[in-house]
């Protein structure tokens, strides 16, 4: 009776295409603190302590917040056309 909506990925499309810079993680130097996971506005960082982080590039918009908040600065923003 009502046109309802349900939680789903890609409610605004494949937002990874918005990206100009791509966050690239040096996982060997990552200290597994979870701060980037906490501040990612888009929930595109997967994190379980002990397994380090994983970024979902299908949807990551490339805002760069993760790189800014990383306390050990192991996330670099790399121009998309160079990767």
């Amino acid at each position: 009776m009502l046109p309802l909506a349900s939680p789903a990925l890609a409610s605004a499309g494949v937002t990874g295409t918005w990206r100009i810079y791509k966050p690239v993680v040096e996982l060997e130097k990552c200290v597994d603190c979870g701060v980037c996971w906490q501040f990612c506005p888009d929930s595109v960082i997967e994190w379980e302590r002990g397994r380090k982080i994983q970024i979902d590039y299908t949807y990551c918009k490339g805002c760069g917040i993760c790189a800014e908040v990383c306390p050990v600065k192991v996330i670099k923003m790399v121009p998309e056309n160079n990767t």
């Binding site: 939680p7 789903a8 990925l9 890609a10 501040f39 888009d42 299908t58 990551c60 918009k61 917040i65």
Partner: peptide, 16 residues
């Protein structure tokens, strides 16, 4: 609780 692929601008503070 906030799913990827949403319509927020990149770096949206509200979404955090």
């Amino acid at each position: 609780y906030v799913l990827p692929g949403n319509a927020a601008c990149a770096g949206c503070g509200m979404m955090i």
